[in-house]
């Protein structure tokens, strides 16, 4: 048993706390799993291929981009490169969260990084910000339900895709942005929050229209992060 799980809450409690953090993600992501499965089959993937993609790539937006390209006659390496580009933001997550889970045994780290999707990263940062240790049990308690749900809904969507009703009527297409907005709000104490959010928002909206998706993520993120990096050193911390 590792050091951080020993000094944390009782073990089942840690795992269940993680499961609790996964609940909004499950509500928000399930429709996209179904949608991905349905679109994957529509774009020529078999049901096992669609499930395999969800189980191994495990990144919603990049999978959507991938199957979009599968439907056209695009060179294989270009599909892989596009998926890599969409997922490039995880490099930042990895560098940031590595500071919190770097004391885990190597095998647990190797496993943990596989599950490092957007909400997993963000909830871990929120927890770390509260001064709590990121235990392996908490991390997997959040990761496993999301992963199982993602693979299962992908299979359901691929197998029964034609039965899916119009997602827009239920507001489903906006649930994940709403969830991520809630997470953005969770970091509002971390200065310089407002300028970073304002710059990233403006840059991502501009890039979305001028360059296109998925580049708006990298471009928008770069704008906010560069501001934080370039800020005069004396301004760091808690003054504004």
């Amino acid at each position: 048993m590792s050091f951080e799980t020993m000094r944390a809450a009782p073990l089942p409690g840690e795992f269940l706390q993680g499961v609790k953090a996964s609940l909004p993600v499950i509500i928000g992501a399930a429709p996209f799993g179904l949608l991905f499965g349905a679109l994957a089959v529509e774009n020529g993937l078999s049901v096992p291929e669609a499930v395999l993609m969800s189980a191994t790539v495990y990144g919603g937006a990049s999978q959507m981009v991938g199957i979009e390209l599968f439907g056209q006659t695009v060179a294989p390496w270009l599909i892989v490169l596009s998926i890599f580009a969409v997922n490039f933001r995880h490099v930042l997550y990895s560098g940031a969260i590595g500071r919190r889970i770097g004391s885990w045994p190597a095998a647990r780290q190797a496993l943990g990084f596989f599950f490092l999707v957007d909400p997993q990263y963000a909830e871990a940062e929120v927890k770390g910000q509260r001064g709590e240790a990121i235990s392996f049990l908490w991390y997997m308690g959040m990761a496993l339900p999301i992963y199982v749900l993602w693979v299962a809904t992908s299979w359901l969507g691929a197998a029964f895709g034609a039965l899916i009703p119009d997602p827009a009527a239920l507001g489903i297409d906006f649930l994940l942005p709403l969830y991520f907005f809630g997470l953005v709000m969770e970091f509002r104490e971390r200065k310089p929050w407002l300028p970073v959010v304002a710059l990233s928002a403006a840059a991502s909206i501009a890039a979305y229209h001028l360059v296109g998706s998925p580049w708006h993520v990298s471009i928008g993120a770069a704008a906010g992060i560069l501001f934080a990096v370039m800020r005069p050193a004396g301004a760091g911390g808690d003054d504004r």
Partner: peptide, 19 residues
């Protein structure tokens, strides 16, 4: 400082165009 800004910066880009 850049790493500290990662969550707000990246997550914002997942919201802003949709908003």
């Amino acid at each position: 400082a850049g790493l500290e800004a990662v969550p707000a910066a990246v997550l914002t880009t997942l919201v802003a165009p949709a908003a």
